[in-house]
Design a binder for these strands. Sequence first.
RNA 1: GACCCUUUCAUCUAGUGGCCAAGGAUGCUAUGUUUUCAACAUAGAUACAGAGGUUCAAAUCCUCUAAGGGUCGCCA
Length: 424
Amino acid sequence: MLRIEDTDMARNSDEALQAIIEAFDWVGMDYDGEVYYQSKRFELYKKYVDQLLSEGKAYKCYMSKEELDALREEQMARKERPRYDGRYRDFTGTPPQGVEPVIRIKAPLDGVIRFTDGVKGDINIASSEVDDFIIARGDGTPTYNFVVAIDDALMGVTDVIRGDDHLYNTPKQIVVYNALGFELPRFAHLAMINNEQGKKLSKRDGATDVMEYKHNGFLPEALLNFLVRLGWSHGDQEIFSLDEMRELFDPKDINKSASSYNLDKLLWLNGHYIKNTPNQSLATMLKDFDLHIDGHDKLELLLDATKERGKTLAEIAGQIKMILDAPQNYNEKELKKAFKEDTADILNDFMALLRDSKDSLHLPCDYHALLEKLVAKRQIGFGKIGQPLRVALLGSMSGAGLDEIMAILGVDETLSRIEKILKS
RNA sequence: GACCCUUUCAUCUAGUGGCCAAGGAUGCUAUGUUUUCAACAUAGAUACAGAGGUUCAAAUCCUCUAAGGGUCGCCA
């Protein structure tokens, strides 16, 4: 079930909504039925507000925002926890003019609100910490803590699992459940995720938007797998498919402590999932990285040669482009390192071999045999030819395997790239 | 400031009084394979926040200290 909690009409934005739907969609988390919008259920909530009002469990409060601010400041100055003082709770006089009242719910005056948290265990919060919070604004629209309790009860939600930042909302929502006579669900509060430095996550920490991960070349499976292991575990298992997550996830295995975001592990997981993704699917995803090899006759070879060494789709795309596009310039340092006095001679020899057996060269192993032939003939180490050849073909000393590269390029292109570097 | 929560390798974690001179994973180091880089395989280093208790026995229970986090809206 997917429910959009959009009770604050002033803050709703269509872009934010679309971003949420898009993210769920990309990550492969689907939901039953249609999306619920709280903004379309205001009539329903209004009935419950009226009910509480007529039962004397809620009341109108005529305090202005300015008065409220002043009260809070006073309380802070007295080093108290700022909260509404309940001055209109039993008000019977003539209401002040020109103020649209808000509706507040009557929270218990004394005692303790208790609940058992699925992660943290028993939580006791003094009722004095929970004030008569607002359930409907001056303009009549209801607020989050009120409608969320109603919807959870009405929609049959059994387990409310959410971030730690909602812990203090729980006693408020319990007040609503009790006032309306609804049965309490189970609550579980997850500790927050910190940044790599162990400090709280902020906008500065980069990828806070789910879709940014897509744009950075991450697979949804990897992101989900990474996230599920943050604060949750199932023995020593590290890799979980979506189905396994659904099957094995149990709130009792959730950790109490906050965890830190760890990019290295995400990268490792992403590499794992890339290796296990069929080439055809990779080719489709690679379109988003300005790489179109869908109908390419060497598609399988291209991906086999690169998928083992890229941690993100962006890296894979880059490596494939290096193969497909002849190098425009060469890394000076690497060029110097790879090219010795006899290098040109060796490369010329290799070109001769290439021309001779041109018609029998098709598979990577064919090229490999040719390289071995050269090495044996000239009595040199593989490095003597391998390094300069790689620079010639890719413009860099690191990248895919030589055999694969040449098989993809074909004899003519291989020759032309070698000739080009010899001329420079 | 008040209230609440947390604390095992650098990081994610296993661990619920003896099986723990603490296990797995990522990262790191080394070795092997290799034409390079990866990938892969093998080996290695690194942790119970601190101090007091309880107990024959404590990472596990209790107390305090310290550090981190959350909340205190006519936001969600």
